[in-house]
Write a protein that binds this DNA or RNA. Structure first.
Length: 284
DNA sequence: ATGACCGGTCGTACCGGA
C-alpha cells in the first residue's frame, strides 16, 4: 500500500501535473495541502477519472486540504478537536480512513514571524492537533498525520541553520509542539533523499533555491507504531519539483506492507463511495 | 543558462507563502 502527502500550491494550477503524477506513482491514497479551492470547486471529475475518490475541505483562495483514495474512503472528519481559528476556523485539516488506515491531511499555519498573532495561532493549532491525535490513538489501528507542518524538526532539516535564526519553522516552541506529538505516540518517518543526502521537501521558488538545494524538510509523516512497523520504504519525490510549473513542495511517498482491498476504481463506478461524505466541504 | 518565484484576486498591485 502506497500513501503520499503533497502540498500542491493550488490544485487548479497543478492539476495536469497532479494527474500525471498519480498515473506514474500509483498511490492508494494522497493527502493534499494548499489546494486553494472551495470544496465545491475541487476538480473531482478529473481525479475520479484517474480512479480516486475525494474528500475535500476548502476555504477558497487560501489553505484547502483533501484526501484522495482509490482504496476506499470512510469516516471523513473535517475539524480538529477544539480547532482554533484566525479568527475563524480555516480549512487546514481533514481525515479519512483508507483500507483500515486512519489518515489526517494537515496544513499547519505558517506563523509568519515569532511574536505575531499568527505564530500564537500556529502553536494553538498544533496543540489542537495533539488533542486530536490523542483521541485518535484510542483506536488500535495504523494511523498517520501527514502534511505540511511548517516546522523543520531539527537543524539538519534546513539548508543553513544560521539563515533561520529569528525565523519561524525552527524555534524552540514550534519544535516542542512536534515533541508533543511524539509524546502522544507518533514517530517522524524520515524519507530517503534521492539526491544530496538531504530529504528536503520544500525549496523556495526564488533565487534558484531548488537547483542549489537550499531547501527544508517541513512536510512530515508522523505515524503511530502500527503504521511505522509496516513501512517498507519512504522517499521524497524530488522529480516532481523539477521542470515547468512545479509546486514549491515535493511529495513524500511511503510504502507500507499492508493489504490493499480489491475494489472497483472510482472511475469505473457509477457513483462515488459514500457520496454524502465526499462533497460536504466546510466553507468559510 | 552562473541567474533565477508563484498563485490568487471584483486584482491589473498586493498579499501570503516559508
Amino acid at each position: 500500500m502506497r500513501i503520499a502527502t503533497w502540498n500542491v500550491n493550488s490544485v487548479t494550477a497543478r492539476l495536469p501535473r497532479l494527474l500525471d503524477w498519480l498515473g506514474e506513482t500509483q498511490p492508494e491514497a494522497v493527502c493534499l495541502q494548499e489546494t486553494k479551492v472551495a470544496g465545491d470547486s475541487f476538480p473531482y471529475d478529473a481525479v475520479r477519472d484517474m480512479g480516486y475518490d475525494v474528500a475535500a475541505r476548502g476555504d477558497g483562495r487560501w489553505n484547502g486540504v483533501a484526501i484522495l483514495s482509490r482504496a476506499g474512503l470512510e469516516e471523513v472528519t473535517q475539524a480538529l478537536v477544539g480547532e482554533p481559528g484566525f479568527p475563524a476556523s480555516e480549512a487546514r485539516a481533514i481525515a479519512a480512513t483508507v483500507a483500515g488506515v486512519r489518515l489526517w491531511s494537515v496544513y499547519v499555519p505558517n506563523g509568519r514571524e515569532p511574536g505575531h498573532d499568527h505564530y500564537a495561532y500556529k502553536l494553538a493549532w498544533l496543540a489542537a492537533l495533539r488533542r486530536t491525535v490523542e483521541a485518535e490513538l484510542a483506536v488500535d489501528r495504523p494511523f498517520a498525520a501527514l502534511g505540511d507542518y511548517n516546522v523543520a524538526p531539527t537543524d539538519a532539516d534546513v539548508w543553513d541553520p544560521a539563515a533561520f535564526i529569528g525565523s519561524t519553522h525552527v524555534t524552540e516552541p514550534e519544535r516542542a509542539a512536534l515533541g508533543g506529538l511524539r509524546e502522544a505516540g507518533l514517530t517522524d518517518i524520515v524519507p530517503r533523499a534521492l539526491k544530496h543526502g538531504t530529504p528536503f521537501t520544500y525549496w523556495d521558488y526564488r533565487a534558484g533555491s531548488f537547483h542549489k538545494n537550499l531547501g527544508m524538510r517541513i512536510d512530515l509523516v508522523l505515524a503511530n507504531g502500527r503504521f511505522t512497523a509496516a513501512v517498507s520504504d519512504a522517499y521524497v519525490d524530488r522529480e516532481a519539483r523539477k521542470g515547468k510549473g512545479p509546486s514549491d513542495h515535493a511529495p513524500v511517498v511511503v510504502d507500507l506492507d499492508l493489504p490493499v482491498p480489491a475494489g472497483v476504481p472510482a472511475s469505473e463506478r457509477q457513483v462515488p463511495v459514500t457520496p454524502a461524505l465526499l462533497h460536504n466541504a466546510v466553507d468559510g
